[in-house]
């Protein structure tokens, strides 16, 4: 098991290094950082002065290593746009995004897993068709539209929840449902097919011949096997929630990392954008790593 984790860590580390190189070089080649700071109407001399002042005249490789060693020292650079250290921006905005991500994944789990199990236990029944209907609809509906409709119904027509903002946990309910719903189809379908496969497996026949039946059979003998693919997908979805909440955060005016990313991009704020892209990627990697480890814990055949 230790060897397995160590192996995975090495893979994650090399992907992380590759990612940092790609993000940095892409952003610093595509946009001229000096021009970005100086603004659209700046004179040539002004741009050159900024270039010298900020050290953009040095080679890109030197600046990359400076950036990376900064990250290790906890110095993520200073935002030109907000005029603040990037690290304090992150610390300011992260709690909202973390809350939103965790709550929306909980919504996904609460809806998708029971629905998937019910659908698998009654294939082609009314409940299976209904679950399929919900899945297809949820997949087809865009997030921003669902967000607006939810606000219309549950905040304006029937004022149960606040329209927008991020002051209390209560503010997060509607956005979590919106964001969580988008992952329901994938997770539910996977749960259904996974459990259906397992129910027809030989070892379930063995368990039945040993006298197990009903819910006990499902929970003690089938669920763990069926959860294996679901765990991987949930991890990917959780990663998505951190990075992909840009639209939902904007609709509900939540000041999280997604909104920060949007504003920084619009303001051509290279230091913030490159850190955010890198952080989102690292979060994604981290959850995948967790999923791998959890899968290895659940399935001994993977502990190689």
């Amino acid at each position: 098991m230790l060897r397995f984790v160590a192996g995975r860590l090495i893979v994650v580390l090399s992907v992380g290094i590759t990612l940092s190189i790609v993000t940095f070089f892409l952003l610093n080649y595509v946009i001229d950082p000096a021009q970005a700071i100086a603004g659209e109407e700046a004179l040539f001399e002004e741009i050159e002065q900024i270039r010298e002042q900020y050290g953009f005249d040095r080679s890109i490789t030197v600046r990359y290593f400076e950036w990376v060693s900064g990250i290790f020292k906890g110095d993520l650079g200073v935002s030109y746009y907000w005029n603040k250290p990037v690290i304090s921006l992150l610390i300011d905005r992260a709690p909202e995004t973390i809350t939103l991500a965790l709550m929306s994944v909980s919504v996904t789990i609460l809806i998708a897993i029971p629905l998937g199990i019910l659908a698998a236990l009654n294939p082609n029944s009314l409940i299976d068709r209904l679950a399929l209907g919900i899945a297809v609809t949820a997949q087809a509906v865009p997030n921003f539209w669902l967000g607006l409709i939810m606000i219309l119904i549950f905040a304006l027509a029937i004022p149960i929840f606040p329209v927008s903002g991020d002051k209390t946990l209560f503010h997060f309910v509607l956005p979590s449902i919106v964001l969580g719903a988008s992952s329901v189809p994938a997770v539910m379908r996977l749960m259904r097919t996974g459990l259906l496969d397992v129910i027809n497996a030989d070892f379930i026949r063995t368990a039945r011949s040993s006298g197990f039946y009903g819910w006990r059979l499902i929970f003690n003998h089938a669920l763990r096997n069926a959860l294996l693919p679901v765990v991987s997908v949930l991890a990917v979805q959780l990663g998505n929630k951190f990075g992909g909440s840009v639209i939902t955060e904007s609709v509900f005016a939540i000041n999280g990392l997604g909104r920060l990313a949007l504003e920084s991009i619009l303001g051509a704020d290279i230091p913030t954008v490159q850190i955010l892209v890198f952080v989102f990627a690292i979060i994604f990697l981290f959850f995948n790593l967790m999923a791998d480890i959890l899968n290895a814990y659940l399935d001994p055949r993977l502990r190689l």
């Binding site: 497996a201 030989d202 070892f203 026949r205 063995t206 011949s209 003998h221 055949r301």
Partner: peptide, 14 residues
């Protein structure tokens, strides 16, 4: 009790 043909798949792998 019953035993089956395929021992490779008749036991729960996890």
């Amino acid at each position: 009790s019953m035993i089956f043909q395929e021992p490779m798949t008749a036991l729960n792998p996890v």
